[in-house]
């Protein structure tokens, strides 16, 4: 069995790991807003600095962080290329039909690429430092107001929790089925796109059937343990806000304030 726990949780005991998951989720959202508000390199640099600090305090190795970026390399390159070729700037270096490369275009595409990288790194920091359970607890707690408009927040959180719980099982199963079909000569790596899609059927059909069977059995097991939905249900683990969370909250607030202030007081140039 390949022993990888999902959610890429990286088990070390750090300041960031111990933070309230709700705070981390809110911070992530605030951070994303901040990088989208940022319009120049100073502001982006400030954001990057904050992120570096987080990585440092979370004690996540740089290699891990870079691995998260590697997953989106294609996306970053693709959007950069598009921006580079289609941005209509004043200082044009090269032009051909609808394509045009300009100084402003280069700056803009680099800026967007950085933004994207920061976004990915920050999001993966959340999953690196938060266990799936506390993540779902955090989501459920944050979404509580939605209960007032009759959205089944508890059910959503439970679905998320079960999904996270089942992911290692299903990943294991996928690799087992894949291996089994490869042992029967299945080839998933060559041929054109239609052939490749067709080649996945021997994996997808058994996987789907197994997922359905598991869902059925899990439903019975939950019924047998008196599950009736979110009403009257209590929670064993309560999330608690501590001084650590307060410090992190202040830091987060300072970041947003910083970006806003920079927008007001610094010259708006690249």
């Amino acid at each position: 069995m390949k022993d990888v726990s999902f959610g890429q949780f990286y088990p070390v005991n750090s300041f960031v790991h111990r933070l309230d998951p709700r705070l981390k989720i809110v911070f992530l959202i605030a951070y994303i807003v901040a990088i989208f508000l940022a319009t120049n390199f100073y502001e982006l640099a400030a954001c990057a600095l904050v992120l570096l600090l987080i990585v440092f305090f979370a004690r996540i190795p740089i290699g891990k962080v870079l691995r998260a970026v590697r997953g989106v390399t294609f996306l970053v390159l693709f959007t950069t290329a598009l921006n580079l070729l289609f941005y209509k700037g004043d200082t044009v270096y090269w032009e051909w039909g609808i394509f045009c490369v300009s100084f402003e275009g280069i700056i803009f595409s680099v800026f967007l690429a950085l933004r994207l990288v920061l976004l990915v790194v920050c999001s993966s920091m959340l999953t690196y430092t938060t266990t799936p359970v506390s993540l779902t607890d955090g989501v459920e707690s944050l979404l509580t107001p939605l209960k007032w408009i009759r959205i089944p927040v508890h059910a959503l959180a439970l679905v998320m929790s079960i999904a996270l719980r089942m992911i290692p099982v299903l990943m294991d199963e996928t690799s087992r089925i894949k291996n089994a079909q490869m042992a029967r000569g299945a080839d998933f790596e060559s041929g054109n796109i239609i052939k490749r899609v067709k080649a996945t059927i021997p994996i997808l059909v058994p996987l789907l059937l197994s997922a359905l069977r598991r869902a059925d059995e899990l439903g019975d097991a939950m019924d047998a343990r008196c599950y009736t939905g979110g009403d009257h249900r209590t929670k064993y683990k309560k999330l608690r806000f501590t001084w650590r969370d307060l410090v992190a909250f202040l830091l987060g607030a300072a970041l947003i304030a910083g970006v806003v202030l920079m927008r007001i007081y610094l010259p708006a140039s690249y």
Binding site: Q181, I201, L209
Partner: peptide, 8 residues
């Protein structure tokens, strides 16, 4: 193991 679950 459990090869019947690879039938498709």
């Amino acid at each position: 193991q459990y090869p019947e679950y690879q039938l498709f």
